[in-house]
Simulated assay, not measured.
Amino acid sequence: MLRFKRAEKTSFNERLLALHRWLQSGEGDYLLKAERRQLEQELHYIFGYHACQMTIAPGAGLLTTSQINHISLLNPSMASSMELARVLDDASCPDCDSLVLADPIHWPVSPGTLDLVLLHHVVEFSERPHRLLSEAARTIIPGGKLLVIGFNPKSLLNYWRWVSPKHRQLFQGVHLISPGRMRDWLTLLGFNVEKINYGAYMHPLDRHSKGLTRELVEQRCRQWNLPMGGFYMMVATRETPGMTPIRPAWSEVRRRFASNPIAGTSSCVGGSAGRES
């Protein structure tokens, strides 16, 4: 009887290290260029003072065209992975002012201090993706932006990994998160998802097609924004907490003469219920 050998479970650092090496290949470079093209279109409309990115490709220059001057890089690594820490420290980051090696689920960032956070292919490789999103969410100011770039489960790249040993090993132990589930998670964290863009539709079959055919297919699919790209980029804004109106001084006097039969909403009632976002 034919039996398949069960794949060994890999750690978060091992998966990130394998992805880092793959992104430096020709196939991974094509994906990075497509992602950088999508990012440049959004960064022109995002302003602020402080930005942070957590990416496994610090040398890709993903935030080079950002309007924000102060950019920090959080290298996603656990303290026990010296190999991954050495690889990320050696990689240059042309668009960063500071580099910090940090635990992905314990960010050394003060709450509500960042205008922009970019999560580049780290959520789906994490063992606790929702906790990673929570850490990123708490550092963003109200009205700040969160950009999430992840592999699309409904893409040629995901289907290709079942027939390609190299891709099957790359995505070993990785749980790809659909855009719908990612939207639900961000909504629970208090974000408003503005848009979802897709790209790299022909990846990884682009090297088997002619240049003109590949460009025409990519251009048409991007125009229609078909949800079948190799990656998706989600743009979300942290919602601004509601304001509690100040009661007029004569409200207490009026209550002495006539009771108000209509119960006020939570935004009009004092106390903790009216101050919660």
Rank of each mutant, 00 (worst) to 15 (best):
P94I: 10
S72L: 04
L133Y: 02
P261C: 08
D115Q: 09
E27C: 08
L186P: 12
H106Y: 05
L43C: 03
L146C: 02
R86V: 08
G28A: 07
G271K: 13
A85G: 12
L23Y: 15
V269P: 00
Q38E: 12
G270I: 07
G28K: 06
A91N: 07
E42N: 07
V122F: 02
Q67G: 03
R238A: 05
D97P: 00
F171I: 08
R36E: 05
K166V: 09
C221K: 02
L147K: 01
I56Q: 05
R161N: 08
S80P: 04
E40A: 09
A200Y: 00
T265S: 14
S267F: 13
L133S: 03
P179G: 05
H175N: 14
K5M: 13
R214E: 01
R207W: 01
A249R: 13
R6A: 15
S25N: 06
T265L: 14
G61I: 02
Y49T: 12
T64A: 14
G150V: 06
H208M: 07
N13D: 15
L156A: 09
S80A: 13
V148M: 01
R254E: 11
A51D: 05
V123D: 03
Y45H: 14
Y198F: 06
M243K: 14
E215T: 10
V163M: 09
Q41L: 09
I105F: 08
M1F: 15
Q223P: 00
A85S: 15
R256T: 07
H106M: 06
H121K: 14
R220C: 01
